[in-house]
């Protein structure tokens, strides 16, 4: 095994997980401990906690704001997000011992197709090109590359469970995989590190922008 494979398979998983956890905690704490801002709600505000949760679920499940106010972007966004949801579920199921191979494949396909379509949408819209920086393209290319290489390397085969468990038990053992797997793993690790540091952190930042600001829940 090459040195880089050793690093990617043995060391970097812990770096990625560590950075992810620390970044989420640091950013989360920064926002959670923010001084209470002046009320800056946007109405209508859901009147009860139940209705607020329902509205947030609607956002998560159907991306309601995009569906309602930016339909041209909705299908691509939905594919990408559903792909990510599926991959999250695949990870969970795999770790607990359920072979969810096809769910992983579907999830990666969703991310791949979604990111390609979003990239094409961004490139073909003069308005979106105007407001985009390199980082917006990088985000999509990272998602595209990660999902494509993961599919190519058969990343979602059930044998990954042993590797995932070996990481959890602090004795990582990636030796059963070929070189392609390590390319995919490297990209996944980069994504895990990058996710909470980028604007993609909205997966949990939205709690603050909606709950604390838009709805004024303190």
């Amino acid at each position: 095994m090459d040195g880089w494979e050793y690093f990617v398979g043995i060391v970097m998983p812990y770096i990625a997980i560590g950075v992810f956890i620390i970044a989420v905690i640091v950013r989360g704490l920064k926002w959670a401990t923010a001084p209470r801002n002046l009320d800056w709600e946007l109405f209508p505000v859901p009147e009860t906690r139940g209705k607020q949760i329902a509205e947030m679920l609607r956002e998560i499940i159907v991306l309601y704001q995009v569906l309602n106010y930016n339909r041209k972007l909705w299908f691509q966004s939905l594919l990408l997000h559903y792909g990510l949801y599926a991959l999250g579920l695949w990870l969970l199921l795999t770790v607990i011992g359920v072979n969810a191979y096809y769910l992983g494949i579907l999830g990666a396909l969703g991310v791949l197709v979604g990111s390609v379509l979003l990239l094409l949408t961004r490139l073909s819209s003069s308005e979106m090109r105007l407001i985009s920086n390199a980082v917006q393209y990088f985000n999509l290319l990272l998602l595209l590359a990660t999902s494509a290489v993961a599919l190519y390397s058969d990343f979602f085969s059930y044998k990954i469970r042993d590797y995932l468990l070996s990481i959890i038990y602090l004795s990582p053992n990636p030796w059963m995989f070929g070189t392609e797997f390590f390319y995919a793993l490297l990209l996944v690790e980069v994504f895990v590190i990058y996710l909470p540091l980028s604007s993609m952190v909205h997966f949990f930042a939205k709690y603050f922008t909606w709950d604390k600001i838009r709805w004024g829940v303190h």
Binding site: W31, N37, N70, S132, S199, H202, A205, F208, T209
Partner: peptide
Amino acid sequence: NWTFWLPLLTSLDLCVKCNT
């Protein structure tokens, strides 16, 4: 700027340039 610190920071940091 305690009055609007959180809305300002989140608005500066989180835009994904979706054009909505």
